[in-house]
Design a protein around this nucleic acid. Structure first.
Ligand SMILES: [Zn+2]
Ligand SMILES: [Zn+2]
Ligand SMILES: [Zn+2]
Ligand SMILES: [Zn+2]
Lengths: 436, 436
DNA sequence: CATGGTCATTGTGACCTC
DNA sequence: CGAGGTCACAATGACCAT
């Protein structure tokens, strides 16, 4: 719904936006207006979601970068013959030759790999496909008990793969928990029958709550982002005049601005929620929260869930990366402006066409673009002037335009978050390639 | 010079800004105008600089957080008596009791500490005060030769202190280089006389060039930031009407906006440099670069040095953190707008007063602030209108206001950088406290 | 006094036992 | 088949000889 705008000209478009303005819907509410040709969007309505994207697969996907391992394929027997040590089991050589022997080589990149570090797995341990190393690591962490706490030297976002897994125990254990490794109590003596069932491969709230930080607002926004891109592109296509731009320019604009657009959409959506006043839901009980979370785990654009999420799990975060608090501030700003949905829609357009000069020069049809841009600008000015008196209108226009800096700020922060969530950039490229 | 604006009313101020507009100065140029009562600023003129802030001290300062070590002060002899092992030298207990015995306890937090990890130092090793651990670590890295390369699992920004130094070898070695540790060749056999002189404690380019990334644009901006704050505050005090605001509001505004103000100043300064076209200095030879760097190491606001710096040292950076490229883009944008210094000055004022609602509510005198803000806004509108025709003026006004999103974007990125450079936030608080 | 070497201690992971 | 144990190996750092 959110990105929806059917084929019509500019005036029809603004008219529609006006008429649709008072139309609110919640993430877990029902869609009231069934007559309009809505294309459902994840930013509020949550249609059928590919459930394959659950926690384990998600992280597996994020970590599936082509690890460069051009091992020389020699000197394994070499070292053991030259130095006849009594034993040499461990492989800490960092250029090992041992793991190119999985029979289903590298076709889908996924099976037979350790879900934690992408090394070759030796079986299912503690509920998850892992390598010997991660198995032992998790075992030791269990044996050590609750006393030991690892600390990350960076931001709890360390890469965990075959060569780096020894660097940060905190992040390694975090990933272990994320992919669902569990002790299942101490092993029962000798029951040959129904043993360890495979872990459900879904976020487990109890496990999840043990984790510290990091994976909350940012993670969900990143995931949301993936799902929302197609809707955003569809929306842009239906902007009057946008399709007249050359295709390359459309792609350029969409690609450059998609993060900002995601942000402004979530913000405008949140402004419409009646119960989105900051700090209200913070008093909800954990039980209520779990109900809500269980009701619809998959994905939701509204900040309401995010807020609950943060309230329960999120402790203090690193300075400057707390997306949640920052978003609340911006929402409150817009609420104080008493902004209408119509104004939000036009602000979106302004934001989409607010490019710096270098980007503008790279467009193929600058003329057409500038026309479009000034048209949007004009539109906002008219909107402001019609409501209030002359000088009041100018003042409101200024307020609205200046508020875009806040959106931009959030977009930049989100970009930083995403860049740390592995290959968001290439992911984006691929997505856009498949869509257009 | 840059933050300079003497005591005068608003009209005098704009007049002065107008008259001073075509006045350019380079970082290594001479100051031409000696009659005006300029207060020199680091953002271009570089007066006497407290040279105490060199590389080593800087990192030492950044890392001087109050490490929470409430060691139980027992069980040292305990363990050696209960288990009569033949040897137990190393202290890996993580709650050691050994380092509260430095006789000059914790008065200035600085002396007798390892410059790398803040553990208690055992003397000067490889030219720098270090602990035994870091000494051995550096020794091994020398013995291993160039073959071995450490890789950081995060972003080459890991914290290095007593408990975390074992986490990331890459970052530990990086810090070793940063504080100036050197091999000085292999030790001469037996010369009892003039031996290792203490390292100069200044950035050494040769050592520095060995490092990968990270410490370039961002580091210098952070350092510049420290030095520039007082000038910024002085500048703000002289804005007509600003001193009429309550003192708390002044502090609030200054504190919230100082990063953005730093960014816009560097940008405007860079736009004035004749040779600041992007990608021009990239062709300079290394020798030329070293000359420039040697000429004035301490601090310089102009991007010209930054550009050289990056051109020589900076390889590709993490996505989204490359301040340098982003700044170049913005500079080029403003150059294409053909922006005047006067316009920049007013933009600065607009940026200073562009706060979100929550901040505005926290001000004590909202009325006064709003008046000031609209005054600034008016001023820019007049400036634009006077130059061009009516509609042209509005268009330019829009362009300028929208361009503030670009500045905000840079500010946000810089904030992220600074937050990773340890305790920039508390540093800022202290600074502001001492000034006001 | 700083350097280079020594070696107990700790984390690791390939392999083994059950 | 997987949990738990084993132990060679690598990194670390307190201490020592020079
Ligand atoms: Zn693994
Ligand atoms: Zn980590
Ligand atoms: Zn140290
Ligand atoms: Zn690191």
């Amino acid at each position: 719904m959110f990105w929806n705008s059917s084929n019509m000209n500019w005036h029809q478009y603004t008219a529609m936006v006006n008429s649709v303005a008072p139309f609110h819907h919640l993430s877990n509410g029902v869609l009231l207006n069934t007559s309009s040709p809505v294309k459902s969007s994840l930013l509020g309505d949550l249609p059928r979601l590919p459930t394959a994207l659950c926690a384990s697969n998600y992280f597996q996907y994020l970590q599936s970068k082509p690890v460069k391992e051009f091992q020389p394929t020699i000197l394994r027997q070499q070292s053991s013959t030259t130095t006849p040590l009594p034993y040499d089991r461990r492989d800490l050589s960092l250029s090992s030759t041992a793991n190119s022997t999985t029979y289903s080589q590298n076709l889908p990149v996924s099976r037979q790999q350790c879900q934690v570090c992408r090394d070759s797995a030796s079986g299912v341990h503690y509920g998850v496909q892992t390598c010997e190393g991660c198995k032992s690591f998790f075992k030791r962490s269990l044996q050590a008990g609750k006393g030991q706490t690892f600390v990350c030297a960076a931001d709890n976002k360390c890469q965990v793969d075959k060569r780096l897994r020894r660097n940060c125990a905190a992040c390694r254990l975090r990933v272990c928990h994320m992919v669902g490794m569990k002790s299942n109590g101490v092993r029962k003596t000798k029951v040959g029958k129904t043993r360890y069932i495979r872990a459900k491969n879904v976020f487990d709230l109890e496990e999840y709550r043990k984790l510290d930080s990091v994976y909350n607002t940012e993670t969900v926004l990143c995931r949301l982002f993936q799902n929302e891109i197609p809707n955003m592109i569809e929306w842009a296509k239906n902007i009057p005049g946008y399709k007249d731009l050359p295709l390359e320019d459309q792609v350029t604009l969409t690609r450059t601005k998609c993060l900002d657009m995601l942000v402004i959409s979530v913000i405008s959506q949140s402004c419409n929620l009646e119960n989105a006043q900051p700090a209200v839901s913070f008093s909800l009980s954990n039980q209520k929260y779990e109900e809500l979370l269980a009701h619809n785990e998959s994905s939701s654009g509204s900040l309401i869930k995010e807020k609950l999420h943060s309230a329960v799990i999120n402790p203090l975060k690193a300075y400057g990366t707390d997306m949640f608090c920052n978003m609340l501030k911006v929402i409150s700003h817009y609420k104080s402006l008493n902004i209408s949905q119509t104004e939000f829609e036009v602000l979106k357009l302004l934001l989409l066409t607010n490019v710096d000069n270098s980007l503008k020069q790279s467009l193929t049809n600058t003329e057409l673009f500038s026309n479009l841009k000034s048209q949007f600008r004009e539109s906002l000015l008219n909107l402001c002037s019609s409501k209030d008196s002359r000088s009041q209108g100018q003042s409101r226009y200024d307020d609205l335009v200046m508020s875009l800096t806040l959106i931009k700020d959030l977009g930049t922060r989100l970009e930083a978050c995403m860049s740390q969530q592995a290959e968001a950039s290439s992911m984006l490229t691929n997505l856009l390639k498949t869509i257009l």
